Measured scan of single mutants.
Amino acid sequence: LVRYRTISKIPQITLNFVDLKGDPFLASPTSDREIIAPKIKERTHNVTEKVTQVLSLGADVLPEYKLQAPRIHRWTILHYSPFKAVWDWLILLLVIYTAVFTPYSAAFLLKETEEGPPATECGYACQPLAVVDLIVDIMFIVDILINFRTTYVNANEEVVSHPGRIAVHYFKGWFLIDMVAAIPFDLLIFGSGSEELIGLLKTARLLRLVRVARKLDRYSEYGAAVLFLLMCTFALIAHWLACIWYAIGNMEQPHMDSRIGWLHNLGDQIGKPYNSSGLGGPSIKDKYVTALYFTFSSLTSVGFGNVSPNTNSEKIFSICVMLIGSLMYASIFGNVSAIIQRLYSGTARYHTQMLRVREFIRFHQIPNPLRQRLEEYFQHAWSYTNGIDMNAVLKGFPECLQADICLHLNRSLLQHCKPFRGATKGCLRALAMKFKTTHAPPGDTLVHAGDLLTALYFISRGSIEILRGDVVVAILGKNDIFGEPLNLYARPGKSNGDVRALTYCDLHKIHR
């Protein structure tokens, strides 16, 4: 019993810090008490220290592992850092350059016999395009090294910054494609005289377009951006097909006994025919423009016929181009109408809503002055909100995010209106959640004399007048207030005048 009563005193000691020596009952000389009392004092002292730490809000209350900052290894790049964003855009520009100039170089340097010394005699450094290609190869190699040090988000939505895990993730992902696209074939085969082989191998750079397509997928929600990307894709495919079309004609031209190829026909049409040795002929500019003209006309199913396939190889390629053109029509131009419709969806919704308003007016036989006010209010409210119901949009977000959005939407009023000066951010967040926005066209009466005042109004834009009878008592403008002081009276009061809008007004109100 003594032991039980001794232990039962522990909660009292913990909360009230009572010393055991003052209790005459606990001072009985028993061996059990002498053993338990020192333990009680020690526990009391420890609990006292913990309570003191909690009340003082000291940093040592938290466990040590929670006080440590997340460790980022040296030379690790955050995937959302500004440097990584700028670097990704730079790589994107280099990939676009590669997609345009690599097929052009591979096709127009394929057994090209233009006048001038061969590239091997001039030297590697004197070729501007080769120098640019070398810079692109170096940048792609540097990009691989950067990807080995860039964080990523795993399946659990955690940012991984450990170098080993980053390397394994990159090896399992895009490393092989990036490595093949970054191989400097110019340096590996330079001086061997195989410019045709170098041009063909350099087309491996186009593998990076797969990554670019995935990154550009984030802009699919913007109709104008999608339309622009589709047109660029169409032009890029036409450019690639033009390079292939020229390569076919250029390879067949020296081996044909009869002059029936499209390059021969082009030379005869523009007065620059090929001679018996295969030299001469149109310039590279004429060849490229004509090839691009043929691919565009074939892809769009126009086909004027002034550039036509004559050999079997050219006919087979033309059939493939027609098939590609039909697929592009289905996948690209078939979506253009939907994209344009999405661009004008706001206008369509406006006309639909206006039609419903006019049908309501016609069905209920609203008189002319009231009908005009109804239409003007709808037009003004639509121009202010673009038909978007803010309350319906915010309803799907958590309250903390709703408060931040409301604070942002009402920031101008909260910053410049005098009653809100000096208020804490928590108070402003709470008030912003209570605001209701209303609009009024010129001549609209917001409050009639004798109406119950259940709200306090803040003028965000425009001006109003307060009338008693036919006498203008006051004219209020931006950041002015009218209405009933909230919670100042037990019952809502009545208006002693009319409140009429002089201009288009936007008002925020808080109800009782």
Rank of each mutant, 00 (worst) to 15 (best):
T385S: 03
L431C: 01
V336N: 03
A99L: 01
R214C: 04
Y377P: 01
L263Q: 01
G422R: 07
N306T: 01
W89D: 01
S277W: 01
G116D: 04
I177C: 14
V131D: 01
P273Y: 01
L134Q: 03
L78P: 05
V168F: 12
H416S: 10
Y124K: 01
H364I: 01
R429S: 04
D444M: 09
T233R: 04
L110Y: 05
A213P: 06
A125N: 04
V86P: 01
I339D: 01
M433Q: 07
Y293M: 04
A225I: 09
I166D: 01
R349Q: 04
A225L: 03
L227I: 14
T424W: 01
G278N: 03
L197T: 05
P118C: 04
L343P: 03
Y219K: 04
L227C: 04
K287E: 01
E196S: 13
V447C: 06
S276N: 04
R71S: 10
N335S: 03
A440S: 13
I183R: 01
L201E: 01
R373H: 06
F190H: 09
L229K: 01
L413I: 10
V302H: 08
R356E: 15
A181T: 04
P309N: 01
G396E: 13
T385I: 01
P369R: 03
L206G: 04
R429F: 01
T300S: 03
S258F: 15
G426H: 02
I141P: 01
D268N: 14
Q372M: 13
D404W: 01
R349C: 08
P70K: 07
G271P: 03
W87Q: 01
L401N: 01
I270E: 01
Q341H: 14
E158Y: 04
F397T: 07
T424K: 09
Q253F: 15
V168P: 01
A291Q: 01
W174K: 05
Y288F: 01
H239F: 01
R211V: 01
P419F: 08
V160A: 03
H364K: 01
G325I: 01
M322A: 04
V289P: 01
T352E: 12
E196A: 14
V289F: 01
P254Y: 14
S283C: 01
I260D: 03
A155F: 09
K434Q: 04
M322H: 01
W382E: 01
W262S: 03
S308P: 01
H448T: 10
I144K: 01
L134M: 08
V307D: 01
L90Y: 03
D88M: 01
L413V: 10
G249P: 01
R259S: 15
A106S: 04
L93R: 01
I96E: 01
G303E: 01
R165M: 11
T113I: 07
H448K: 03
L200T: 05
Y65C: 14
H239N: 01
I198A: 05
